[in-house]
Design a protein around this nucleic acid. Structure first.
Lengths: 224, 224
DNA sequence: GAGATAGTTTTCGTATACGATATCGTACTC
DNA sequence: GAGTACGATATCGTATACGAAAACTATCTC
C-alpha cells in the first residue's frame, strides 16, 4: 500500500472512487457479465484496498441500477433478461429522443460532418459484418447527436441507459443483422432533419422511433 | 445498541437501509434543507449506529442526485437553484409525460373517479389557498395517473424527479398561485383525454405540456 | 437410496481505531 | 492595519476486527 503513493505523489482520487470506476468499468466492458457474483473481499483484494471503499462503490452502482444487492447475500451484476432489455430500451428511446431534440439546435456543421463520417464507416461495416464494431460506431454516432443536450440530468439518464445496455454484451445487431442496414439509413434521415432545422418535436419523434424500431426488430426476432 | 433487538425479535432491515431511509426522509420532508451539511458522525450518533452504514446510505443518495459529495469535505443536501429547478422540471416533464401515456390504458374507471375526487379537493383548496396542501394533493393526483406505468425504470425516474422537487420545499404554487387555478382545469382535461381513450401520443403531449406550463409560470414570475 | 439435520465454511454487516486532509483561528510580520 | 504563515480542531477516508447470517457439506436416519 505504501508503494502506491510513492512516485506520483499521493493518489488524486479516493479509493472508493477508484473502486467505483474499476467495478463499473468491468461491468461495462463485460469482464463481469450479468449474474456475476461480486464478492466484496475478492474485489478489495484485487484492487489492493479494504472492503469499506468497495462497499461504497457497490452502493452507488446499486443506485444506478447496474448491480443488484441482497442483504446478507451479496451483490451481483444486474442480469438483463429480455424483459429488462425491453424496459431499458423503451426508457432509452424516451430520454434519448428528448436529449437529441434538445441537443439539435446546438449541433453545428462540423458535428454533422463528423456524424456523417461515422455513419459512412458503419455503412462500410455492413459487408463483413462485425456486430461489435458496428455497435461501437453506433454509440459514437448517437453520442454526437445528444451530447450537446443542455440539460445535464437528461444527459445523465441517457448515459446510464447506454451503460445498462453495454453491460449486456449481446448487441441487438448480432441477433438482427438485418436491422443494421435500416439503422444506417435512418441515421442519414436524422441528420437531414437536424440540418434542415426541423422542429424539436419532429426530431424527438424520429430519434425515438429509430430506437423503438431496433427494439421491435429484436422482439420480432426473439419471438420467431 | 443491544436494546434495539430485544422486543421485536431482531431488526428486519440493515442499519445501512435504515440510515438511507432516515436521511432520505429528512431531506424530502424538509428537515434537512438544501445546502444542509450532512456530518457523518452526527447522523450516525442520532441514529445510534456507526458511521459505516451512514456512509453507504449517503453514497446511494449521491447516486440518486439528492446529495452532493465532496472528497475530504463532506456531504451536503443538493441545493436546487433556479437552474437546477429548471433542469429537474424539464426532465420530469419528459419522463412523467411518458409514464402517464404508458399508464393510461391501464387506468380504470375507479382510478379516474379517485383522481377526479382529488382534483375536486384541489379546486376547493383554491379559496383560502394553502400551497402545501395543494402541492400534496397535486402529487397524489399525478400519482394516480402514472403509477400504473408498466415500465419500472420510467416509474423510478418519475419518483426521483418528484423527490428532488420535494427536497426544495418551495412549491411553485406558493410563488405563482395563479397557476394553481389553471392546473386544476388542465387536470380535468387530462382525465377526459384518458377516459376517451385518446392516443398515447396525445396523452403524453398533454401531460408534458401541463408540467412545462407550470415551469413557464415559474420562470415568468421569477423574471419579472 | 432419498431426505433431513447438524456442523463447517464463506461472506456479509457493523463497530472501532487511526492516519490524512481541510477548515478555522491566532499570531506574527511587513 | 492587512496579509501571510503556522498551529489546533473538526471531519473525512480507510484498515482491521469480530459477530451474525447464509450457503454448503457431510453424515445420519428411515
Amino acid at each position: 500500500m505504501s508503494d502506491k503513493t510513492s512516485a506520483a505523489g499521493s493518489q488524486t482520487v479516493s479509493k472508493s472512487e477508484r473502486a467505483y470506476a474499476a467495478v463499473k468499468g468491468r461491468i461495462v466492458d463485460g469482464s463481469y457479465s450479468p449474474g456475476y457474483r461480486l464478492v466484496l473481499a475478492k474485489i478489495a483484494q484485487d484492487l489492493g484496498v479494504s472492503v469499506v471503499p468497495v462497499r461504497e462503490a457497490i452502493r452507488r452502482l446499486e443506485a444506478e441500477g447496474l448491480v443488484k444487492f441482497e442483504r446478507n447475500v451479496g451483490a451481483t451484476v444486474f442480469g438483463i433478461d429480455p424483459t429488462e432489455y425491453l424496459y431499458t430500451m423503451q426508457t432509452l428511446s424516451i430520454v434519448e429522443g428528448a436529449a437529441t431534440a434538445l441537443s439539435a439546435p446546438l449541433i453545428g456543421a462540423p458535428d454533422i460532418a463528423r456524424a456523417r463520417a461515422v455513419n459512412a464507416e458503419m455503412r462500410e461495416c455492413l459487408q463483413d459484418f462485425d456486430p461489435d464494431r458496428f455497435t461501437r460506431l453506433n454509440e459514437t454516432f448517437h453520442g454526437i447527436l445528444f451530447e450537446h443536450c443542455p440539460n445535464p440530468h437528461i444527459l445523465d439518464l441517457v448515459h446510464r441507459g447506454w451503460n445498462r445496455l453495454a453491460s449486456l454484451r449481446t448487441s441487438t445487431f448480432r441477433f438482427v443483422p438485418r436491422r443494421a442496414r435500416e439503422s444506417v439509413q435512418e441515421h442519414e434521415m436524422l441528420l437531414r432533419l437536424i440540418e434542415s432545422g426541423a422542429s424539436a418535436d419532429e426530431i424527438e419523434k424520429a430519434a425515438r422511433l429509430h430506437r423503438s424500431a431496433t427494439l421491435d426488430a429484436y422482439l420480432a426476432q426473439s419471438n420467431s
